[in-house]
Write a protein that binds this DNA or RNA. Structure first.
Lengths: 143, 143
DNA sequence: CTGTGTGCAAACTCTTTGCATAAGT
DNA sequence: ACTTATGCAAAGAGTTTGCACACAG
């Protein structure tokens, strides 16, 4: 194994530990799949399949557990898209998404210049947790 | 029955008819519940309960059917909020939402001045169907 | 060792479907 | 009459839970 990969695994181990979770085989393996390749948008089932494909025989229930624990720890965010499945985003910073109707594909909008103006104040006693923008796309129809 | 209510029911009948749907008792009754009171955010189950409470013994399957048919006809929109339930919005014009974490409550952001600047171009061959902004709120924590 | 995590299967929730009956045009 | 809609119950998808066994500290 080259040193870069090993460093990543050490880093994931630390992230999991810092989140107050035991760095078990399964959690570290899932963490590696999630965090090693940049920003990802995954459902539990997709991650489960990836794990099996990677030779980590983790159960689906454990994948759900890990995803929720990571989310509580701030390592993941849940994406607000309609549809039956829950998607998790490995990028927890403020950024936004394109969503392709019909295909259930999601990808990031480059974070840079997008900005919302004139957002109203939240009601008394509430504060803004975050702002999600979803730009729903459809195939351009022929003229 | 006063003339205003009767006029509303005639209008709903026409909306349903214009959508290419037979104005059956159930669809008209559901349409009235949906459209008579301004903008609403409802799940299928909530609408079902309202219908029963209003003395319209409609089945849950029919509520789902009607909601989807109305959505296809452009009379409703599906809200993009995470969570297991699907919410339907009776306001189909471009507007945005506050979402209260934990309570699953949704309400409109006054449409007026909110604006997004510097939204990137959609990828080749795609066009924007719509843009949803969800502002997630949480209770302000004491200082 | 001790306690937390995991895996399995069963349970649960929300939604959709199939088919006989009822209602609209 | 003819066709489409409805209601019921059962199936389906996604997710969660309970409990015995395994593993990390």
């Amino acid at each position: 194994m080259d040193s870069k990969v090993r460093d990543e695994m050490v880093a994931v181990d630390k992230r999991v530990r810092d989140a107050g979770l035991r760095p078990t085989r399964q959690r570290v393996a899932l963490g590696n799949l999630l965090f090693a390749k940049g920003d990802r948008h995954l459902s539990a089932e997709e991650l489960h399949e990836e794990a099996l494909a990677a030779g980590v025989p983790v159960s689906l229930a454990t994948v759900y557990n890990a995803l929720h624990q990571f989310t509580e720890a701030g390592l993941l965010r849940i994406l607000a898209v309609e549809g039956s499945k829950t998607y998790f985003d490995t990028n927890t910073s403020d950024h936004h998404h394109f969503f392709i109707e019909g295909e259930n594909r999601i990808f990031d909008i480059a974070a840079g210049p997008v900005e919302i103006v004139n957002l109203p104040e939240p009601p008394e006693g509430m504060e803004i947790a975050n702002v999600d923008i979803v730009v729903r796309l459809r195939p351009k129809r022929a003229k």
